[in-house]
Write a protein that binds this DNA or RNA. Structure first.
Length: 881
RNA sequence: GGGAGCAUAGCUCAGUUGGGAGAGCAUCCGCCUUACAAGCGGGAGGUCACUGGUUCAAGUCCAGUUGUUCCCACCA
């Protein structure tokens, strides 16, 4: 960084170069080191074929802030990156690509498909992690893992086999959520319920042997009537109790259906009659079980009607077409009663938005009850800390109502289920490797065709990436991790499953803290999504504004658990701030050239001590905030300090001293500038790593800011008295600027300035601040005195705590306006005095408020009263003239 | 049906343990003051949704009301 360098910071000159340097130096690589305390974060693995989006950028920024902060504090930090094979998402993409070439899974076969999948994976698999690098993340890429790499796949097999042995994994025919589009079962968590308007059709089934009598019921899914096996009424419903045990006829299929009594049926909803379709509805399934009813499956895997008995011409029709035609046929037969509109909650697959059908399927499940208990317990006893706490309720509520987890997927891209079926005796063998022979002695074995839910492997991420099931030193050292940072969206999918997996297999929680982030929204507050097309590409923002600007804008204003709207203006503002830092650094660099900048504490002026003291307390504050995950507030505090205090005040303070080569305090100013710049850069580094490193190295502050020390609070640098003095000077400067503005004094016009005070201490302070008042408040000269008679005629004045300040501006003084201004000022002060007086007259306040608070109020009261008196005197004098 | 969040300046949002209402953008006025016009200085703009309560003291804690967003749930 040299004098002739650009007045604008250009991230493109810096970012890639520094990132490569960091990687070369191996700063982000962590090795087991017993002499240091580990600090570990598991990066949520993005989908292997995914693209970086704003959610990633937010999440990664927050984690990087924590990692860099902790590294600077001396922790041995590991940020474990990697990717997720994302079973359904990836397979869908591959199938779509294949379709472009006219290929299908069936045509390629399993082996052919997987070959293609891996090839594509090799082609695009590195893209997203390359994109993450653009953000400047301090992740340990040497340890990058993939959920389907050899080690992690072994972990998956190990877990499956162990859970199976324990009886916590079982295979069974259950009603599962089925996606007719993806043709696979999915878990409860993957179903998104949406309230939709839907038809509500009323039909009648004639009662057998009761000429003309019918039972009327309502349904939102008429097509399922083909699978009806009964109708149910409430046993206490007097309207129907006499019919219990009799039968109705399904007019289309001609089947006889018993009328059963079941408490599930509400008498006050619909007609009080429910058709029972156990194969296609979770409630009906339960009713069917209670009454020993058969299940009649009417649907194929693709959502068309199958060849079920009685389906007739409906066979092969799509479910919605069948719905329409069945309504029409019932109407033609005279059994359609009416159609209403109702709001109905419809389940859709979160990946493809197709409406999910409950279907009877033979699937693998994880028994959740025993696993959920310790996960619940860990939260309730405080071992697991969720930030913000309100998400704890969501966590417990979900675990308390948890059902068994359907883990088998009818997909090929994923971990194939390690279950082997004997073609002879039917025995099922679950093993990590294919058994040579079945128990029965035969070798007629076939492995299960299905693969595992993608979350089954990511649930193991905190320990599988560290080498489990091997007992590696890494596992011993870095596990449990320190904090997990993730969006609330995947609390159920991932966080909870990691918790119980860690407890089950490591005997210990995978992390103590869970920091929940919000999700990124667009300017209008809409969730950023592919389908809406309202996503903003972080890479484009980085290209235009730099990674630091993007990161800083995501960090500021971020509070745990709250959604964040993306505003380009915020990025611009961050960019402007970083540019400010760049220019402040240039200024310092320019002045340092050829100068000695050594100084001792005793050489420092009050202004130097003031800024050092501020930087000192800021260091403490930022440390505390980051430890509380208040990343947004921390970023904000740093920005306010650097911009408002350091740049706008301190650097301005130093100019007069720097420009005068003879000034005896020049070196002290340079030394302080360097000190505070260094502190500022280090406080800022976790948020904006590139800019801070570039400047840090330009100043030869050290080898790299990445491995520098995070600023610590130092009691020896607490200068409360000097802080107070300088604040008083600032207040005077502000008051004078305000006065000049109000009087329309051109900035170029300097004026002699008189500070009058009866307080010796105040005179000392202002005497010390003369140069600042001259430089910043348009004073040509400053006289500090207790003698009011020095003041020239026609001066304007301003009252500040401890003093009156006068500027002779004869030609600009309009007595009437001046009087009005003073009266306004007086009124304001009177208000303050009244407020404080009321407080101090309140016996309750005096008795119960802390001593310091009362003292503070007293001091304020005295200060305002004094200022008020001064203005009163001025007004009186004016009236006399 | 159950649960949660939010409601603060024209806009978007901070306000961390209760102790004199803040920022950015927008707006108005004045400045190219040799680090920075992506800047500097100075203003204007708010009964902190409503009602009640706790407290010496409430934007902050509690209860309720209204509006709004989200999550969960097997109402056919």
């Amino acid at each position: 960084m040299k004098r002739e360098m650009e007045t604008k910071y250009n991230p493109k000159d810096v970012e890639d170069r520094l990132y490569d340097l960091w990687l070369d130096k191996g700063y982000f690589h962590a090795e087991v080191d017993e002499s240091k305390t580990p600090y570990t974060i598991m990066m949520p693995p993005p989908n292997i074929t995914g693209q970086l989006h704003m959610g990633h950028a937010l999440n990664a920024t927050l984690q990087d802030v924590l990692i860099r902060f902790k590294k600077m504090q001396g922790f041995n930090t590991l940020w474990q990156p990697g990717t997720d094979h994302a079973a359904i998402a990836t397979e869908t993409k591959i199938v779509a690509k294949m379709a472009e070439e006219g290929l299908t899974k069936a045509a390629l076969g399993r082996e052919g498909f997987l070959k293609r999948a891996w090839a594509w994976n090799d082609e695009v698999g590195g893209i997203i992690t390359q994109q993450f690098r653009k953000l400047g993340v301090a992740a340990d890429w040497k340890r990058e893992r993939f959920t389907m790499d050899e080690g992690l796949s072994q972990a998956v097999l190990e877990v499956f086999v162990r859970l199976h042995e324990k009886g916590l994994i079982y295979r069974g025919e259950r009603l599962v959520n089925w996606c007719p589009n993806c043709k696979t079962s999915i878990s409860d968590a993957e179903v998104e319920h949406e309230e939709k308007q839907s038809g509500f059709w009323y039909f009648s089934y004639p009662i057998l042997d009761k000429d003309g009598e019918v039972l009327t019921f309502a349904t939102t899914r008429p097509e399922t009537m083909l699978g009806d096996v009964a109708v149910a009424v409430n046993p206490d419903d007097e309207r129907y109790s006499h019919l219990i045990g009799q039968r109705v006829v399904m007019p289309i299929t001609g089947k006889y259906l018993p009328i059963v009594a079941d408490d599930y049926v509400k008498t006050d909803f619909g007609t009080g009659v429910v058709k029972v379709t156990p194969a296609h509805d979770f409630n009906d399934f339960e009713i069917g079980k209670r009454h020993n009813l058969p299940s009649v499956n009417i649907m194929n895997d693709d959502g068309t009607i199958n060849e079920v008995d009685g389906a007739g011409s409906y066979e092969g029709l799509d479910r919605y077409e069948a719905r329409k035609r069945i309504v029409a046929e019932m109407e033609a037969l005279g059994f359609f009663v009416k159609k209403e509109e109702t709001n109905n909650s419809v389940g859709a697959h979160d990946r493809c938005s197709s409406v999910v059908e409950p279907l009877m399927k033979l699937q693998w499940f994880v028994k959740m009850e025993d696993l959920a208990k310790p996960a619940l317990e860990a939260y309730k006893n405080g071992d697991l800390n969720i930030i913000p706490p309100r998400f704890g309720k969501i966590y417990t509520h979900w675990l308390e109502g948890i059902k068994d987890w359907c883990i088998s997927r009818q997909l090929w891209w994923g971990h194939r289920i390690p279950a082997y079926y004997c073609g002879d005796c039917g025995e099922i063998t679950v093993a990590k490797t294919a058994p040579a022979a079945c128990k029965c002695g035969c070798t007629n074995l076939a492995q299960d065709e299905d693969s595992l839910d993608t979350w089954f492997s990511s649930a193991l991420w905190p320990f599988s990436t560290l080498g489990w099931p091997e007992k590696t030193p890494e596992l011993d050292y870095f596990y449990p991790t320190s904090v997990l940072v993730t969006a609330y969206e995947i609390l159920f999918f991932w966080v909870i499953r990691m918790v119980f997996s860690g407890q089950e297999f490591m005997g210990e929680l995978p992390f103590k803290d869970v920091l929940i982030t919000g999700i990124m929204r667009d300017e209008l507050g809409r969730k950023m999504s592919k389908s809406l097309g309202n996503g903003i590409d972080p890479l484009e923002i980085i290209e235009q504004y730099g990674a630091d600007a993007l990161r800083f804008s995501l960090a500021t204003g971020n509070s745990p658990g709250n959604d964040l709207r993306f505003y380009i203006e915020k990025v611009e503002q961050s960019r402007n701030f970083l540019n400010k830092v760049w220019n402040a650094s240039r200024f310092i660099m320019m002045n340092l050239e050829g100068a000695s900048h050594e100084a001792a504490l005793e050489d420092l002026t009050p202004a130097d001590k003031w800024i050092l003291s501020k930087a000192n307390s800021l260091s403490k504050e930022v440390t505390e905030l980051l430890d509380k995950y208040e990343i947004g507030i921390a970023a904000d505090k740093v920005q306010t300090f650097v911009w408002d205090e350091f740049c706008d005040w301190y650097i301005e303070f130093t100019k007069a001293r720097l420009y005068n080569q003879e000034d005896p305090t020049r070196n002290a100013a340079l030394w302080t500038l360097r000190q505070v710049l260094s502190i500022s850069l280090r406080l800022l580094h976790p948020f904006s790593p590139f800019l801070t490193e570039e400047i840090y190295q330009s100043f030869d502050f050290g080898e790299s800011i990445v491995i520098s020390d995070f600023p610590k609070y130092d009691e020896a640098r607490n200068f409360a008295a000097d802080e107070g003095d300088i604040e008083q000077i600032k207040e005077a400067v502000r008051a004078l600027r305000n006065l000049r503005q109000q009087k329309d004094v051109p900035p170029s016009r300097k004026a002699k300035t008189f500070v009058i005070s009866q307080s010796q201490d105040a005179r000392r302070i202002f005497e010390g601040g003369k140069a600042y008042i001259m430089a910043l408040a348009g004073a040509s000269d400053v006289t500090v005195s207790d003698d009011k008679s020095l003041i020239p005629e026609n001066s304007v004045s301003v009252v500040v705590p401890g003093a009156e300040i006068f500027m002779p501006l004869a030609d600009l003084v309009d007595m009437a306006k001046e009087k009005a201004r003073l009266e306004k000022e007086l009124k304001k002060l009177q208000g303050e005095v009244d407020r404080v007086t009321a407080k101090l007259n309140n016996q309750g306040f005096l008795a119960k408020a802390p001593e310091a608070m009362v003292e503070e109020e007293r001091a304020k009261g005295a200060k305002y009263e004094e200022m008020r008196q001064v203005i009163l005197a001025q007004l009186e004098q004016m009236n006399e003239q």
